[in-house]
Amino acid sequence: MRRFSWFNATSLTVGFAFLYLPMLILIIYSFNESRLVTVWAGFSTQWYGSLLQNQSFLDAAWVTIQVAVASSTIATILGTMGAYVLVRGGRFMGRTLFSGMIYAPLVMPEVITGLSLLLLFIGIGLDRGIFTVVLAHTTFSMCFVSVVVSSRLVSFDKSLEEAALDLGCSPFDAFRLVTLPIIAPAVISGWLLAFTLSLDDLVIASFTAGPSATTLPIRIFSAVRMGVSPEINALSTIMIAIVTVGVVTASIISKRSSLAQQRDEQAAARAT
């Protein structure tokens, strides 16, 4: 039976105020009547209207979604393969190099990743566009997927796979029927992570996109450089709302399922 001490309550309050106040202000002022972002002039949803009329934002959003869906899906497949190779692959030539290439992009400054990919695309004469952004995003987000999935793979009991093999599964069937269902939550969160990273990325996209494919972050960045604007506030609010609903829903679902599992276990324990 623990309670919050005075000190802990204060640091949590101040800490979370620091984390959330800026976003809260942003959301409130997206409903501001005035074009001056820091002066309140009454409630209005006009900036949402003007945002939805702004074709360049809509185009950019569409490009971003295409890129994010494509890159996160490919990254999830490649990243899961990579994780499996890392954890269960045994020894093979160049294993150290492989694990290095999985971990290095996690800490690589985006400017360097972006620059190097751009120089590659130019070097092999690939025209820059949506395709090159997808390639770039897949490459760095597959590493994040690998890390998420491999941490789940490490913690799960290898004897389950061995039991499947013992009962007559081929290695591929054992993966499909036993391993995959168990690591599925990690694979899904890996996909979500890859999707978010892609939605969020400005720097790598700026290097690899070229003039034909403007993603939403690139569009926002060029608008924000000019200073604060209520349309960007409105756009931010929409994005924050989507993320919040998504994350909260996901956490409620996972909490429900773990509670249900707990209940089942308790019921089973009573039954015996």
């Binding site: 949590l12 976003m23 202000i25 969020d200 400005l202 972050p217 960045f221 924000v224 993320v243």
Partner: peptide
């Protein structure tokens, strides 16, 4: 923190991480 608070607090810390980096930086300009 009390056990029943932990999950919520953790969620509150993770939530900003999922929201756009660019927007979080932008929010400080104003």
């Amino acid at each position: 923190a009390p056990d029943e608070w932990r999950a919520t607090l953790l969620l509150l810390v993770i939530l900003p991480f999922w929201t756009s980096f660019l927007i979080r930086v932008y929010s400080w300009i104003g």
